[in-house]
Write a protein that binds this DNA or RNA. Sequence first.
RNA 1: GGGCGAGUGGCGGAAUUGGUAUACGCGGCAGACUUAAAAUCUGCUUCCUUUACCGGAUUAUGGGUUCGAGUCCCAUCUCGCCCACCA
Length: 794
Amino acid sequence: MSHYDPLKIEEKWQKRWEEEQPFAAKDNDNRPKMFLAEMFPYPSGAGLHVGHVRNFSIVDCLARFYAQNEVNVLRPFGYDTFGLPAENYAIKTGIAPQEVTKTNIDNFRKQAWRLGYAIDWSREINTSDPEYYKWTQWCFLQLFKKGLAYQAESYQWWCPVDKTVLANEQVENGCCWRCGHEVEKKKMKQWFFKITAYADELLEEIDSLDWPEKIKTMQKNWIGRSEGAEIVFEIDGHKEKLTVFTTRPDTLFGATFMVLAPESEIIKKIVSKDAKEAVEAYCKAAIKKSEIERQENKEKTGVFTGAYAINPANGAKIPIWVADYVLSGYGTGAIMAVPAHDDRDHEFAEKFDLPIIKVIEKPLGSTDDSECYHGEGEIVNSEQFNGQDSADVREAMVAWLEERGIGHKKVTYRMRDWLISRQRYWGCPIPIAYDKNGKAHAIPEDQLPVMLPKIDDYKPDESGRSALAKSEEFMKVTIDGEEMTRETDTLDGYACSSWYLWRYTDPHNKKAAWDKKKVNYWAPTDIYCGGDHAVAHLLYVRFWCKFFADEGYLDFREPIKKLLYNGYINAPDGKKMSKSKGNVIDPLDVINQGYGADTLRTYELFIGPYNMDAAWSTEAIGGVYRFLNRCWTLCFDKKHATKDVNIVIRNKTIKKVTDDIRRANFNTAVAALMEYVNELYKTGACDEDLAILAKLLKPFAPHLASEMLESLKSDDVWPQYEAKYLKADTVEVVVQVNGKLRARLAVPVEDVEDNAKLEELAKADEKVKTFTDGKQIIKTIVVAKSHLVNIVVK
RNA sequence: GGGCGAGUGGCGGAAUUGGUAUACGCGGCAGACUUAAAAUCUGCUUCCUUUACCGGAUUAUGGGUUCGAGUCCCAUCUCGCCCACCA
């Protein structure tokens, strides 16, 4: 007598899949296509994680399901390999990131094989492969040529000792996290992608996407479109003018002071002699303050510049202040303060004793009892606008300003342009060189890729540039006979992942990033699955898609039709798995201890709704193993029945599993298969029962299902249910009295549609009678579709 | 502070359009097999009352709409996530 031996079965089928390559997608095919992908992983040294397994298993279940439904499926795989961990490891050990990455990829690939994924391995990609990043550089150049990749000065955290830029999180109490020296905010020239050029389209098309609402809302908030006006203020005794952005031009008469961000250039020009020292000290301190500090202490601070602006509405002289609650990166970095109707301005005015003028009357009966009213209402204290509604004045005021040439409508976005230069070695080199005058030139396309040179020391040095600057050979380049110096910054890793979905459609193309015909056949990606990057990556791909559509390289403007956002798998204690806590579950351990890949995959899909976080349970996985073991036993260790008695439940199961997979309700699909197997254990399974079971099981447990199908001599074509077999001979009809369940009637299927008959049967039932006798029946509701009768009595 | 989402047995969860609440699994209990244990198989398992039947209660709390509410509406409480001085 043999037994279910998952490791043996899995080895057999994995070997066969390697030989036969049954998952290769066909570029020319008349069948409907389906392009599915997970967010490609960063191949860390730790190897595959149970979170990867959940993510990949969702995609695999769908890929196999559609393949069994005779759809031409593209299910590729790749690695997002540039990034800090490999570089830090290189700095520590001297081992080249290229080598570490290769080792890690080999390990990841081997582990993914052990899970039996239906991947088209001929399309594997790796973002740090020169064959790949050549085309990342090509993408950059397209953006550069259109002015959408540009350089600009912006404030960065800078450590004068380490001579390097620091991330906000690397600044602790105003000091460098490494050396402890005070950091400065330094203006540095950096590369940006002009994502804001697509802000409106990125916002408008969100609603049309089949994406989780949560992600859509996050993207909308991130883009943060605000409609309002820009208004120009004269400065008393100066030529300079001050432009502010406001969403409430209707409150202009209530503007009693102005506030500038500490970074504003104009401060130097307008500050009075008396105020100069205090203003300079304030600005220096404010600019030094970290974001973290700003969050901790939100009490308003600021200083008066000694200068006055003229309120264009009423000619009033109003003081100009500097305060760090005004952000330099948003709007114009300057505001008109309306303390009567804005909380922040109100708090500031109270603290510094500035005038507060009410210009909107709270409507009678308003329940808003805050000191400072933000709603709509009748305009007051505003001369010719008095008596009108604030919403109308918002328009009228802008028209009035426009007539005088001192204001206009304006839309502002919270989203900033995407800073993409990094002073790091292990990234895609930016294909730019500088001439003697410092002007940036594109590296000609025939000189791509700009290869990342092999170097010995990966540590950033005194120059403040990436380690690339140390390679003299790298630095020198000749363009059109002119000697130039290369850019030493590399691209943010998100640039590499902004186009990889299209590379999958044509991964070995040496002449182009992708072939137009192939990309337009396969893409947009039909189903994309991941559990991270709600805003950044998923916004950047959308941005590049729109750009390349505008350039004629793509025939679609949205890259991802349906997004499945899967939840995390946490440790059994509900906490995040982490090495330091020692609560990490290694998927390979789970397989090797005897459960096998089929159990692991099925368990991770059964653990709960795919989009919710779940805690690993070492007991519950045993239940899934038992289920697969029962499947195996039915097929290989029990006598098959000769009579077919399970037609109804079989057809119901086909319908349920099919519908559930289409809805991504993987957990209930598995539950339906368990019910089916429980029933087969009671009644006995015939060959037809088993073949259907194996076919439905294959997307979850492909090795076991293949083994079953082989022994049953069956193909794996997805079964169709027959509607006529979904109903048994008799149907259970429930009878309620006043909404309470009182009886269950077995009604012949032909009588179920007959309302009068159902009512008659219900009223004649003995048990029902005990609740209706002696009472007046007011009405009877018969819902044939729900198999339900409700008798209302008094 | 703002936005979004969620609260169902001992636990993970199911209930697809307002129509039989608690599917499926874990855990627990009992039984079969076994010298014994594991494995496997069978049955029971929301709570209260009851040997059992019957009955009653129950989807965070309180109210509402409806013949009928886990599902819709209002209020309250709790938890989670995201954003956070965005003018």
